[in-house]
Structures are given as C-alpha cells and as structure tokens.
Design a protein around this nucleic acid. Structure first.
Lengths: 162, 162
DNA sequence: AATATGAGTTTAATTATTGAACCCACTATG
DNA sequence: CATAGTGGGTTCAATAATTAAACTCATATT
C-alpha cells in the first residue's frame, strides 16, 4: 500500500494520517500552530531538506490545511496560514505533547506552557466524553461495531485491567 | 536530521513523533487499540510489507508501547499487548478520528462508534481545559514562553531564538 | 505424507529523502 | 554601478527506506 492510498481508506484514522501521518508534516503543523508562517522559518526549525519542506507544504496546501496569503507581489511571496481545518488539528498535537510529558523521560527544558485564552489560565489538555463530561481513561472505551468483545485473543491468557 | 534524532529532541511533540510519527506505527496503534494483538492480524489490516510490520512492532516494543505476552511456548509465539504507556496514546488516535470525521469528506461507511464504559453512552472525544473544563476551541491557545505575540504575519524579523 | 498456520527473514527492485549547489527576483550597501 | 544578501524555492547525485514476493522454521491438522 502506498501513502496516497491512505487518503482513500475507509477508516477516519487512516485518512487523518494521510494528512499528518508523516513526521515532517506533523512538525510543520506544530510550528504553524505556534505562529510560524514562512518557508525559511519552517526549514530552520525542522532540520530537514529544503526539498522536503517545499513538498510537504505544497501537500498541506492541497489538502486545505494551509492557505497562501501573499505579503508582497513583486517577487511573489506568501505566508503559509492555517485554515480552520488546519487549526482544528491543534488538539491532536496538544495530546501528543501531553502524552510525551506524561510518559516519556523528560529532556532538559521545562515543557512549553499553554494558556487558555478563554479562562486565562495555564492548562493541560484533557480528553473528556461528550456525554458525561468526565475524562476518558485509557481502556475505558469500547467499539460496539467491532467483534463482540474487543479484548480477547482466541487463546485468552488473562485480560488485563485498566 | 534523521528519524532517530527526533527522540533526542527537546520538544515533546517531536519526541511523541519519534514513537508514532510514522504512518505504519500509527496504524498499528490504531488496530491495537481496537484489540488486535497478532502479527498476521496487523499485517492483514495494514496492507504494508511483512518486513515493515516486523520492524515497527519491534520498535514499538523497544519503546515500551507494546509488551510481549507468550501464548504458546514451543514454536515461541506471543501477543503484542499494549502497555499503560501504549494505551495512553489512545486519545491521540481518537482525536485523529474526530478530526477526520469533522473535516474530511466522508467515505462510505458510517464512522466507527465508541462507547464510554464509565457512562455507557456512545460519545465523541472532546478536548477541554484542565482548569475551566470548557472545550478548548482552535485558536484559543497561546504560548507565553514563545515570542511575545504568536500571531504576526506582517510584522517582520524580531530576534527571538527559541 | 501433505498441507496449513504463525511469525518472521531475505532479497532485489523501487521510492523517498538528503545535502549541497544552483536559480530567480528583487533590496540594500559601498 | 557592482556586489552581496534575502526569501523561496528547484535540481541532482548519493543514500536510506520500503515494497512484493519468495523463503524459512517449528509445529498442528488431515
């Protein structure tokens, strides 16, 4: 299976990955969410080849994650500005950061702080259930459309709790 | 910059991507969260080469996302079972699905339903602020540790050095 | 025996990515 | 004026990653 076939996949996770399931695309998005808009700024932060930056930015524009906003005409130049669709990817990136901070050994610097503009406080992202508004703990989700029981491996040794 | 250097990066998003920033790793994780535990089952769902499945599974075991649980000894065989660390990646995958369902054109089948075991209802994942418990809307986050203002497209080069 | 299963490994061919240099249209400096 | 610098790329040869298909190995089933 090739990259571009993911976009045709029936699974929404696969289709999301056709957009951000590449390390460079995801890192470009991270930087864009922090305010980067220029080619050279992306390149400087990413540390990958210029060709890669150009290619991924072009793909992300095609996918409607970025739009081009001209900031000068004569040598035509533009900013890469996130669209609504692109900004909506923010929660995925926030959950990645959150997972890292919780589960991976920390590197040197203190984690990047985030402020919620609505309440003014520094915060952590928390994923809650749309119905009961309680945090959704790992392992407390099931998929009624899949095989009768999701936790069962033919020869079951022991279910783990969680 | 190479793949393996991401793990050393100072940014938590980059470090998370060193684990799941690859389409196959992310799809393996998706399937694991839905209950898949066997090599051939991952391979059948992914549609990539067996070599790739073997490699990614081995990496994910190294990174502590999966652990091996033997289910027979003589030809030694095992299930790939998510660890706590691995299960904690669930919210990232849920937010990916959520984004797809909201922002990408739908394919044929109805989206996979999720049930929250704590309240028993079908739900959507919602990302809220840990402080005020309100949903964090796109664009309502700022980063006080970055350059004074994160949104400037027309104001040019200010020294910043993150 | 012969076939099947589960979990990989090997190999050659194909793709993707890199680093470095190059290009273009301007702007600023001497 | 001549030269260098900037922003945003493209091109190209070399290197790395990925693929499909075949192969291995131990055991189970027919």
């Amino acid at each position: 299976m090739r990259w571009d076939q993911l976009a045709e996949d029936d699974c929404p996770v696969a289709r999301a990955l056709s957009v951000i399931g590449d390390r460079w695309a995801a890192l470009i998005l991270r930087d864009a969410l922090r305010g980067v808009t220029r080619f050279d700024a992306f390149h400087a932060r990413l540390g990958c080849s210029r060709a890669m930056v150009a290619k991924r930015l072009a793909e992300l524009v095609d996918q409607g994650v970025f739009e081009l906003r001209a900031y000068q005409d004569h040598p035509p130049r533009h900013d890469y500005v996130l669209t609504d669709r692109g900004r909506a990817l923010g929660p995925i990136v926030m959950m990645m950061a959150q997972w890292s901070e919780t589960w991976l050994p920390q590197r040197r610097s203190s984690p990047l702080r985030r402020r919620h503009k609505d309440c003014g406080q520094l915060f952590q992202p928390v994923l809650v259930c749309s119905e009961c508004r309680e945090p959704v703990e790992p392992g407390r989700v099931e998929y009624p459309d899949l095989a009768p029981s999701r936790r069962r491996a033919t020869t079951d040794r022991q279910g783990q709790s969680a």
